[in-house]
């Protein structure tokens, strides 16, 4: 092989490597999410009510405690699970229970759920039970929303803001 032919061969090899690098750096394109759908993310952290109601300590009980531990209320640590319902256009989209976090089950329940839904004008209802009651709900919110293609709708919960919010 002459030197000129070898150099041409090298240029071809370098061009092939460049094509390989440049090509697969952006191609083929990947469709992560289709244009005719939207996403609902139901996500928040919430500390539910205690499983056993708090009780006021007697004076005798308080005197037996170290001075820095004399709290008037005696509360059980464990919290109840959070029960959630999500309806989409009148149909149930999700029903689920979220356990409190922590080894003693005394932390907030962590909620992070994703739902792929059709786009358009939609009615969404979300309900939560976070107490020892066995029926009914402690919080409920609903909204009729326009969901454009690939809209990322977040349903969060902040008690200080009055409960659920849609963002």
């Amino acid at each position: 092989m002459t030197r000129a032919v070898a150099y041409i061969g090298q240029v071809i090899v370098y061009a092939a490597i460049a094509a390989l690098l440049g090509g697969f750096a952006t191609w083929p394109r990947h469709t992560h999410f289709p244009d005719d759908q939207a996403l609902i993310k139901l996500s928040f952290a919430h500390s539910a009510k205690h499983k056993v109601a708090c009780r006021k300590r007697t004076a005798k009980e308080l005197s037996k405690l170290a001075p820095n531990m004399r709290r008037t209320l005696s509360c059980s640590r464990e919290r109840v699970p959070v029960y959630l319902e999500l309806d989409f256009d009148g149909a149930p989209l999700f029903r689920g229970t979220f356990a409190p976090s922590g080894l003693s089950r005394d932390g907030p329940a962590q909620v992070y759920e994703r739902f792929v839904v059709p786009v358009g004008r939609r009615h969404v209802v979300v309900r939560m039970r976070d107490s020892t009651r066995s029926e009914g709900f402690d919080y409920e919110a609903q909204a009729t929303l326009d969901l454009p293609p690939r809209r990322n709708l977040v349903i969060g919960f902040r008690p200080e803001m009055g409960g659920f919010f849609f963002k």
Binding site: T26, W27, R29, H32, F33, D35, A38, L39, R150, R151
Partner: peptide
Amino acid sequence: SVVPGTLDID
């Protein structure tokens, strides 16, 4: 607020 759709992937 918008979910990424079609992307150029490395």
